[in-house]
């Protein structure tokens, strides 16, 4: 039976490799049969803002793949509000929630990884 991994992503797309690294780890963990949660915190919600197809690699594409593979993704609602991101700005199916959802994930997790920098 798989373990539960929670990933805290604090950085947005493009400016660094953290978003891509976090999503690749999430995809690999799912491939190995683990439960994976990803909380988009601080600048992380910007990753969910990359919604359209593009002729080059982008974190939004990886995030869509991760969600299709069963990664649970949530956005910090305060972080989104501070950046004027509303639910319609984000990839469909990602709830904007408070910190208590994240602390609940912490409780359930066997491992927690933070991607910041």
């Amino acid at each position: 039976m798989g373990k539960t991994l929670t990933i805290l992503l604090n950085r947005g797309p493009y400016i660094s490799e953290y978003a891509d690294l976090a999503l690749r780890v999430a995809l690999k963990a799912r491939e190995k049969g683990h439960n994976v949660n990803m909380y988009l915190y601080v600048d992380g919600p910007w990753v969910a803002h990359v919604r359209q197809d593009k002729p080059y690699h982008n974190s939004g594409m990886l995030l869509r793949q991760a969600m299709e593979k069963g990664v649970n993704v949530k956005i910090c609602n305060r972080c989104a509000e501070a950046r004027d991101l509303v639910p319609g700005d984000a990839l469909e199916g990602i709830p904007m929630v408070g910190l208590f959802d994240f602390t609940e994930w912490l409780r359930e997790s066997d491992r927690v990884l933070t991607f910041t920098g």
Partner: peptide, 13 residues
């Protein structure tokens, strides 16, 4: 717990 549709002015502090 915070609900999904809450406003966020004081939601996460």
């Amino acid at each position: 717990k915070q609900q999904e549709d809450d406003g966020c002015a004081d939601a996460c502090v």
